[in-house]
Amino acid sequence: MSTPSRYWREIPQRYRKEANRCAPCDLIYFPPRLICPECGNRALEKTVLAEKGSLMTYTIIRVPPSQFKDQAPYAVGIVEMDDGVKLTGQVVDCEFDKMHTGMRLQMEFRKMYDVGHSGIICYGYKFVPEY
């Protein structure tokens, strides 16, 4: 589970979807990388991810890690964002029987989990049906 420093370090990605991009390859990396694995370019430029995308595949997690027990069962999917980046994230505010691959989704800011009763509260993005 997240400790404060480990959580804090990822804030630009978790809160603001900050990514980076290899211009020659026209590929976006999230989380940002120091080197493009396709061409070796190290001069990657900052960018921000698209807000919307389409569901590629999903599952309903019924046996969750302990910190997610209050939320189970919940859906996790891989979403292809409109800029081509593929992201893993929960899909919420949608009945399981209404979920389907290809459905349009957008990001929302949500709580991921609490670290016990006294630890930090971890936030980040989840996906909801586009509205």
């Binding site: 939320q71 919420v92 505010d93 800011f109 949500r110 709580k111 991921m112 936030y123």
Partner: peptide, 16 residues
């Protein structure tokens, strides 16, 4: 609220 929503998450969405 859902279990994953609180004052902070709703503030962020309203502010966005």
């Amino acid at each position: 609220p859902s279990p994953d929503q609180d004052t902070i998450t709703m503030s962020v969405e309203a502010s966005k």
